[in-house]
Nucleic acid binder design. Structure first.
Lengths: 79, 79
DNA sequence: ACATTTTGTCAAGTATTTTTGACATGAATC
DNA sequence: GATTCATGTCAAAAATACTTGACAAAATGT
């Protein structure tokens, strides 16, 4: 899963700390999410999308890898 | 945060177990999310939206409460 | 009424996210 | 070259998500 947090943050000219305060988390959390160290909760994701006035899908992008792995029979679609 | 998982599941005529298998989690996880016992990761949310061919925002709905609480100065908007 | 499937729930354990506090780096300013 | 600000990172703890296995309640089908 990729994310465009850094880009959106730049568009709005927010520092990581600005953003952290806006959505009520620590600066490190923003940093870690931005660097892809972990995937936030959907609650956080929705708040981020709210702040940036965009969709969750604009910020967080599923990759094929995310769909393959699983036990899932449905996924591991095409190349 | 509300969610419309049950509704979408009904629309697609999936059981909790069907859905669980599709996205590669346990049935209980689906059940707990559906009952609002906890908020999934954005990764799970994206997969759910993918399966239902909809937006994360269609499945998970922020409520005013979610925005108030915070230390955030930006939120606690209107009534 | 009985069997089956689906859902709700519990408990205990593992994994992941989030927090706090701290420190190092690079860029910009003075 | 010292100061400040934004970012990257580490480590340890707290909180939350997720797993497995199991069982009861509710709904569905015969």
């Amino acid at each position: 899963m990729k994310n465009k947090l850094k880009v959106y943050r730049a568009m709005f000219d927010f520092t990581q700390e600005d953003l952290a305060k806006k959505i009520g988390v620590s600066r490190q959390t923003i940093n870690y999410i931005e660097k892809g160290k972990y995937a936030p909760s959907v609650l956080l994701a929705l708040k981020l999308a709210y702040v940036f006035n965009c969709k969750v899908e604009d910020l967080f992008i599923l990759e094929n890898e995310d769909l393959k792995q699983e036990d899932s029979l449905i996924f591991q679609g095409g190349e």
